[in-house]
Amino acid sequence: MAAEIMTVEVAQASAAGLKAVGAGLAVGLAGIGSGLGEMGIGAAAMGAVAENKDMFGLALLFTVLPETIVIFGLVVALLLMFQ
C-alpha cells in the first residue's frame, strides 16, 4: 500500500522534512545540554557577583562557557540545512 503512494517527489519532500527535523533536534537537544550546564554555573556566578561586584567579568565568562555545546548543535544544523 505504502509503496504505491511513495513517488519520487514524496521521497524528496520527506527527505527535506527529515533534514529539518534533524536540524531542529540538533539545536534543541544541544540547547537543553547547554542550559543544564549553565544552570549550576549561573547560580554560583550570581552568588559570587553578589559577594563581590568585581567578579562580574569572570562570572559572565564562566557562565557562557557551556555555550560551545549549543554552538556545535547550531553548526550541525546549519550544515544539514545548507549543505
Binding site: I71, L74, V75, L78
Partner: peptide
C-alpha cells in the same frame, strides 16, 4: 578538535 571546531561559533552565532 573541540577547540578548533569551537571557532565555528564565529559564523554560527553570526548566522543566528
Amino acid at each position: 578538535i573541540s577547540h578548533v571546531l569551537s571557532y565555528t561559533r564565529l559564523i554560527a552565532v553570526g548566522l543566528s
